[in-house]
Write a protein that binds this DNA or RNA. Structure first.
Lengths: 153, 153
DNA sequence: GTTCCTGCAAAATTTTTGCATCAGT
DNA sequence: ACTGATGCAAAAATTTTGCAGGAAC
């Protein structure tokens, strides 16, 4: 049930859509896209900044924020706030592939899951409310299997 | 389907639990609890600060944050981050009464809804994932009926 | 050669902390 | 009286903005 995000081609598509929208292939933005393309799950702006610096691909943190802002506006990236007051970002896949997050209260791990029934239920709910839904976020919080098992000892 | 939160007695219960936990009935914290008790939906720390000041019940904003922190830790208040990078807070009801939020992309209005089927589906999901769930949050985003209608013109 | 992109530094926001003082028990 | 609670101001953390120089087209 816990899945890893399909990563096929997201980076390429993102770069192409940027180009098509008339944006130049600047170094910082491309680096951010390429890093996000490798991710299974969400990263904070700071994590992106740090990881790029680690790889000797230094960029200004302002460029990271600007890239994320642009990508979010183009719906290529999903922005999440799953607690702790920091925004997290992850690739948004065109094929409707869609996942949600479950956070362990104990160890802080963020895992990912998907469930078609849940998706359908949420869509129906939007209709019933009279909303034209653009998206939705679900965050579950609790104790993960590992931390739960550790308790038994 | 869009409901208003039951507000019966939340304030009293919160104050009592605080007292029972050995906290003194200080002015600022009590004011925050009483303001939250009147709310149907979530407020930001700044909104709480402003509203109290409006009512000539001035408190330091630090006290607002401290009160919210304490209440959140005692699970008397639910902390939410529904975008825009600001945390919002609302009473958490003991009877399991539980609602979620739908945000209009256009006008920014936050509405509230509840759905028992959704609650059950999420609980089952937690079990299937092997998590002991403590809570969950669902945020729907889209165009509200009013903004959608305005478009047709 | 334009025009957009980038990095740096400064600013703006939101939240937290230190500390002296005040108030609840 | 003792000790927690409060308010203020300063600090910290996160995100945004201004601007000069550099890079993409």
């Amino acid at each position: 049930m816990i899945v890893r995000a399909a990563r096929s081609g997201w980076g390429e598509r993102a770069l192409e859509e940027l180009r098509r929208a008339g944006h130049r292939a600047g170094g910082a933005r491309t680096a951010v896209v390429e890093l996000l393309a490798e991710q299974d799950c969400c990263l904070t702006a700071q994590e992106i900044f740090d990881e790029l610096r680690e790889r000797d691909r230094r960029v200004g943190i302002a460029s990271v924020y600007r890239a994320l802002d642009l990508l979010t506006g183009m719906k290529l990236v999903q922005r999440l706030e799953i607690g702790e007051g920091v925004a997290r970002y992850e690739p948004a896949h065109a094929d409707g592939e869609h996942h949600h997050h479950v956070v362990c209260d104990r160890c802080g791990t963020v895992a990912v899951f998907e469930d078609d029934r849940l998706e359908r239920a949420l869509d129906r709910l939007g209709e019933r409310l009279g909303y034209h839904l653009e998206g939705h976020e679900v965050v579950l919080r609790g104790t993960c299997p590992a931390c739960g098992a550790a308790d038994e000892t």
